[in-house]
């Protein structure tokens, strides 16, 4: 790019470099926050491990898992439940970053983000990418501990799972972002737990295969089938074994686009929910 072109770019609009600097800045801050909030990392790791070490050990004898794709043999319950726990990490992270958006907004940091001259959709997507990166790191930390515990996936599975993690992380992060535009107060995260995290987690294929659910309750089965979280889990489960669940991929991709669009719309100054509500301004 010539000197005049650079000058023109800085005078009006922004150069690709400036977009990159902005993304890097947002990611770097998210990392710093993650590092500073050590309890957040520890609890993100301990939560699924409690399920893996205790719940799965207890359930192992009660629940027989037959051979279902992508598994080629009978698997232990620990193995079955691992993708569900991975998705749980990402669900919590998505909601937690939504909590941090609410917190940010309360503390005014969100205001600072939104007065950046870069387009607002870009700022929100950068924030989303940053929180997804954090969630992927958390998942790999969990996979490492699970590996040491004896829950092993095929070696290349650890690589093929990455794109699935990115996509499902984006979907859950975008859902969190959409919710954050609707939550007014910090305390309402308890509400998010009750009304979003628990129903999504339990009405999914995280803890039990859907054919088992179908046998006991067709209604709950139908709900599980409608739950996008089920597809995030299945996408991850198949990717961990080097295969693609196309239906899950399609659902997760479509839901990601919808949630991102919803979040961008909710934070849009003209149509947004913030505008309708007054943004907490006295």
């Amino acid at each position: 790019m010539s000197a005049t072109a650079v000058a023109a770019a800085t005078r009006r609009g922004f150069s690709a470099m400036q977009y990159l600097i902005c993304l890097r800045g947002i990611m770097w801050r998210e990392m710093l926050r993650f590092v500073h909030q050590r309890e957040r990392f520890v609890s993100a790791l301990v939560r699924p491990l409690v399920w893996l070490f205790i719940f799965a050990a207890g359930f192992r004898q009660i629940l027989g898992v037959s051979i279902i794709p992508p598994y080629e043999t009978y698997v232990l319950y620990e193995v079955y439940v691992t993708p569900g726990l991975i998705a749980m990490i990402q669900l919590f992270n998505g909601m937690q970053s939504s909590l941090s958006m609410v917190y940010d907004r309360e503390m005014g940091n969100m205001r600072m983000l939104l007065v950046s001259p870069l387009p607002r959709w870009y700022l929100l997507i950068s924030k989303l990418v940053a929180s997804t990166t954090v969630s992927v790191l958390q998942v790999y930390a969990f996979l490492l501990v699970a590996y040491l515990w004896g829950v092993e996936a095929p070696p290349w599975g650890y690589v093929t799972v990455l794109p699935a993690l990115v996509l499902s992380g984006l979907m859950l992060g975008a859902l969190g972002m959409l919710l954050s535009s609707m939550i007014r107060q910090l305390e309402n995260f308890a509400g998010v737990m009750n009304f979003v995290i628990f129903p999504m987690f339990f009405a999914s294929s995280a803890l039990y295969p859907l054919w088992l659910v179908q046998q006991s309750s067709p209604v709950v089965y139908a709900i599980c089938r409608l739950n996008p979280f089920t597809y995030a889990i299945e996408l991850t489960r198949f990717a961990l074994y080097g295969t693609v669940n196309w239906l899950a991929l399609a659902v997760v991709a479509v839901m990601t686009v919808l949630f991102v669009a919803g979040a961008v719309l909710a934070y849009d100054p003209a149509r947004g929910l913030i505008a309708r509500r007054g943004g907490g301004a006295p």
């Binding site: 922004f14 150069s15 470099m17 400036q18 600097i21 902005c22 800045g25 947002i26 950046s116 700022l123």
Partner: peptide, 10 residues
Amino acid sequence: LYHAALHGIG
């Protein structure tokens, strides 16, 4: 530095 990044400043 975070603020600078939000403004695209290297």
